[in-house]
């Protein structure tokens, strides 16, 4: 099958890949760019393990073709923090035991990151509703919700202090 070039901005870097039109974005991210943080859990958009951020929206990369990402700005879990400086959400998930097997975690944190951009000060109910596209089989969500609310509080108090 003929391949074509797709150029994307991934975690702040311009990346060029050769893909078949039928290749799903998740496999291109994972197998060509070796960004194995986003995972495949269902391939039907239900579980959210593959969640990445594309042009400021949470997207399930298992049901999007890589060619549709031409020119897109993509952030994956690998782009959120670094070993020397974890993102507040990454710290918060560690602190509040917001993960167990870790399989849903990259998608979960990436989604939570966007949620807090959309709604910096969510209620518990808004967090639960806003995270309903991401399934976790281990935690029962209680500590995920706690992690996100704590991260929101920390981000808000940091930005208040900055003002």
């Amino acid at each position: 099958m003929t391949k074509q070039i797709v150029e994307m901005m991934v975690n702040g870097e311009t990346r060029e890949v050769m893909v078949e039109p039928r290749e799903l974005l998740i496999y291109v991210l994972r197998e060509q760019l070796r960004l194995t943080g986003p995972h495949v859990g269902c391939e039907t958009s239900h579980c959210g393990a593959c969640t990445v951020e594309i042009n400021g929206k949470s997207v399930k990369s298992c049901t999007m073709f890589a060619v549709q990402a031409q020119g897109a700005e993509i952030t994956t879990i690998e782009g959120l923090g670094s070993p020397d400086g974890l993102h507040v959400l990454q710290e918060s998930f560690k602190e509040h035991h917001g993960l167990q097997c870790g399989y849903c975690t990259p998608g979960m944190i990436t989604r939570a990151h966007r949620l807090l951009q959309e709604n910096p000060n969510p209620t518990e109910e808004e967090v639960r509703f806003g995270m309903a596209g991401n399934i976790c089989r281990c935690t029962g969500y209680q500590n995920i919700v706690k992690s996100i609310l704590a991260a929101a509080a920390e981000i808000n108090s940091a930005s208040e202090a900055a003002q």
């Binding site: 994972r30 960004l35 194995t36 943080g37 986003p38 995972h39 495949v40 994956t76 879990i77 690998e78 923090g81 070993p83 974890l86 990454q90 998930f93 560690k94 035991h97 993960l99 870790g102 399989y103 975690t105 990259p106 944190i109």
Partner: peptide, 16 residues
């Protein structure tokens, strides 16, 4: 948990 540094950064190492 000591596992979480890897998992929260997308650095788990699962079969796929």
């Amino acid at each position: 948990r000591v596992e979480d540094a890897r998992f929260t950064q997308g650095k788990g190492n699962y079969i796929d």
